[in-house]
Nucleic acid binder design. Structure first.
Length: 511
RNA sequence: GCUCCGUUCGUCUAGGGGUUAGGACACCAGAUUUUCAUUCUGGCAACACGGGUUCGAUUCCCGUACGGAGUACCA
């Protein structure tokens, strides 16, 4: 193990978004690439937004795409606990330390008072009304109140927060691994709340404290955090940890497939693709959302697709397994600009990986579909069908969807093909062919083909001329794998029955 | 509004002071397949704009436009 330690730190406020999954993936790839440690930390400091079940959902999602955790709530580890709610007692001392050093202060303002402050600033034409080095002098805090009044308030448990005392004029620099030097003036940063009145830390404090305590070496997170990164630098500095501060890498965002803005569940719903890795039912609303897994996406395809949304190896290789990615991944090759989410590319990856599965694995998908339909099927037959369908499908369930005729006689016929191909020659040859198949003789594709060719030539018709009509009679559709193989699999007796049915049902095209 | 970040084919991207600006997805066409799909071959298609710097800029710098994020006792 190297000293590379990264963490994925979601907050359990709902299903893990696909963008979050990519963040987790990049963290994981970086950790493995450098033989480092991958930590899962649950950032559940917001009790109001907590949604039960999400922690388990997150873990299952990570496991599904192959992310193995080294430390976390379940795995344990030397820096636990790994849920911030369980670390609650820990944070206050750091906030108090900051107060003592003069870098933070108590604030007793009520929500109403804060709102009044913002309103009056807005009315006075201030575009960015915030609690900062200027306005704090007019508020009720330990900077403005006499010390004994402050003590009295604290001792009588008056609700209060602890705020960071952001300096008035200071240039804050940070060297982001993806973006280079980022400069922000402290005047832009407000006096952020560090400890909430419910005794919980805010994200900023908890995050910095935990990253330090857990010896995180690289903070790899979404770009939405870039504006508050300078604040975090300030915290490291005032806590005396700047020397050991982790390196930052802010990832580009995932954008809507078309139009503007970042990818949302709404877009996904509208365009008919998932946005969550797994099926998810919102416990509050009961609203259900389909996951990539349930929609038929293979984890290796999703991983490959996600990895390439914002990163690429610099070669022309497109297909990368998780292990391949581990071997080539580097933060330097991550893009700066946001990436539009193109589901067609994801589908292409799915097709590629599906094609690389063994027929046995594909057969198990088919058997699963069949079980849902209440259809029994010998394993061997499923393997044969899967092999035939392998190059023709994008999703596992399509083996069943597109191959129903292996199990059920057609109840409708493609009208276009019927109109075009179901002619007198076809009817004559097909009827004769059915007869020539004999009584319940098992036959392989080659034998069936020979029978068909013999029958056709007897009737003086080129077999190619009637092939489509025969396919129509047997499958009801115009396309599909080799017809002889289909007939072998469904058996000659069934073929005869389907032909007889078609002869009765379909009308011969007028001459 | 303000701050920060960004901008190469429709999309994901490679590249980078002098290139026929490369690949992939999608799309179109041809070949193969008795069909459909696959596969193969080919095609369409991009450096946001304006100023600099330079012999030369898509590449470096500045501005503009456009896009994104942030601006909570949410993360």
């Amino acid at each position: 193990m190297s000293d590379v330690r990264v963490r994925f730190a979601p907050s359990p406020t709902g299903a893990l978004h696909i963008g979050g999954l990519r963040t987790a993936l990049y963290n994981y790839l970086f950790a493995r690439r450098h033989e480092g440690t991958m930590v899962l930390r649950i950032e559940d400091t917001d009790q109001a937004r907590f949604v039960p079940g999400t922690e388990a959902y997150i873990k299952e999602s990570l496991a599904w795409i192959g992310i193995r955790l080294d430390e976390g709530p379940d795995e344990g580890g030397p820096y636990g606990p790994y849920r911030q709610s369980e670390r609650k007692p820990l944070y206050r001392q750091y906030a108090l330390d900051l107060v003592e050093k003069g870098h933070a202060y108590y604030a007793f303002d009520t929500p109403e008072e804060l709102q009044a402050m913002r309103d009056s600033l807005t009315a006075a034409g201030v575009t960015q009304p915030q609690y900062n080095s200027v306005t704090r002098t007019r508020m009720r805090n330990s900077l403005t109140l006499p010390p004994d009044e402050v003590n009295r308030l604290l001792e009588s448990d008056v609700p209060h927060v602890i705020r960071l005392k952001v300096p008035r004029k200071e240039e804050i620099r940070l060297n982001d691994l993806i973006r280079g030097w980022v400069l922000v003036h402290s005047a832009q940063i407000d006096d952020k709340v560090l400890m909430k009145s419910d005794g919980m830390p805010t994200y900023h404090l908890a995050n910095v404290v935990d990253d330090h305590l857990m010896k995180i070496s690289h903070v790899i997170r979404g770009e939405e955090w870039l504006p508050s990164a300078p604040l975090h630098v300030l915290l490291y500095r005032y806590l005396g940890w700047e020397e050991a501060m982790p390196q930052f890498a802010h990832l580009p965002l995932l954008l809507k497939p078309d139009g503007n803005g970042k990818l949302s569940k709404r877009d996904a719903d509208q365009m008919g693709f998932p946005i969550f890795p797994l099926d998810w039912t919102d416990p509050a609303t009961g609203e259900k959302a389909m996951g990539f897994r349930e929609a038929g996406y293979l984890p290796e395809a999703l991983v490959n697709f996600l990895a390439f949304l914002g990163w690429n190896p610099g070669t022309e290789q497109e297909l990368f397994t998780l292990d391949d990615l581990v071997g080539s991944f580097s933060l330097e090759r991550i893009n700066k600009a946001g990436a539009r989410f193109d589901i067609q590319k994801a589908q292409w990856y799915n097709q590629q990986y599906l094609r690389r599965k063994s027929p046995e694995v594909l057969a198990s998908y088919l058997l699963e579909s069949l079980a849902g339909e209440g259809i029994d099927c010998p394993h061997e037959k499923a393997v044969a069908i899967a092999g035939l369908m392998q190059d023709r499908v994008t999703f596992p369930y399509e083996i069943w969807e597109q191959g129903k005729y292996f199990f059920r006689a057609p109840d409708t016929y493609d009208e276009k093909v019927a109109a075009k191909r179901w002619n007198e020659d076809a009817v004559r040859v097909i009827a004769a062919f059915s007869e020539a198949l004999g009584n319940d003789n098992p036959a392989d594709a080659a034998a069936i083909k020979a029978t068909l060719e013999a029958t056709a030539s007897q009737q003086g018709v080129n077999p190619g001329k009637i092939m489509q009509a025969l396919r129509l009679a047997v499958t009801g559709t115009a396309g599909g794998p080799d017809l002889m193989m289909i007939m072998e699999i469904i058996g000659t007796k069934e073929v005869q029955s389907r032909i007889s049915n078609a002869l009765k049902t379909l009308k011969v095209k007028a001459a």
